[in-house]
Design a protein around this nucleic acid. Structure first.
Lengths: 96, 96
DNA sequence: AAAATGAATTGACAAACATCGATATGTTGT
DNA sequence: ACAACATATCGATGTTTGTCAATTCATTTT
């Protein structure tokens, strides 16, 4: 089923940008607000927002608004899902 | 270190295309020659060759020429590497 | 209600990517 | 050496992606 591969490809696509990997690493040390991420990440505010959307949609990050600040934190589900896909890909369990 | 993230991003980028995931799955059932892959994969010969190069360079696939046929097979190292990166990313062990 | 502030969205643009047809390279059999 | 075949490379093209500045939206504070 072609759709399946597209969903799975999207998961890895989220991990295929250096800035996004850096964001994930920074978040490993705990929840951060967007403004804090911006300090560490020589990119514009709109670019950061764009990356965060991709990471959230792929399940790697959770967001929660606290007042006017947006707080981001690691969502373990994304990692579990990515590892599961890798595992299935490796053991020939994907359904056609 | 910026370079580190680029190398890691390239690993996941290799997995971020539906056709390449399909190729990996097909190879799970054993070594295949390019012509066999071409039969299953509604893409042109040059496109297949391009994808195989990416998969090989990212460490997911090994190639070995047998006469005029090129045989491709799964390279476990790529999967181990990808899982290692995911694990490090998850446990905050990446060196800055 | 108005001003201020943080984040998301929009529109534009260049770089990267997937794809193809055509051509080149490498291998086998005549 | 040559013809046939399998694969790789090249050049072109349309699409996707990462990026930014400008704008809009949401929230808080005055």
């Amino acid at each position: 089923m072609k759709l399946k591969y597209e969903n799975e490809a999207a998961v890895f696509k989220a991990l295929s940008d250096p800035n996004r990997l850096l964001i994930l690493e920074i978040l490993q040390s705990g929840e951060k607000c967007a403004c804090k991420l911006l300090e560490d990440l020589e990119i514009s505010q709109s670019t950061l927002s764009h990356h965060m959307k991709i990471l959230c949609e792929a399940g790697f990050v959770e967001s929660n608004r606290q007042g006017k600040w947006m707080h981001y934190s690691i969502n373990k589900e994304g990692y579990e899902n990515a590892k599961k896909i890798l595992q299935e890909l490796e053991s020939c369990m994907l359904t056609k």
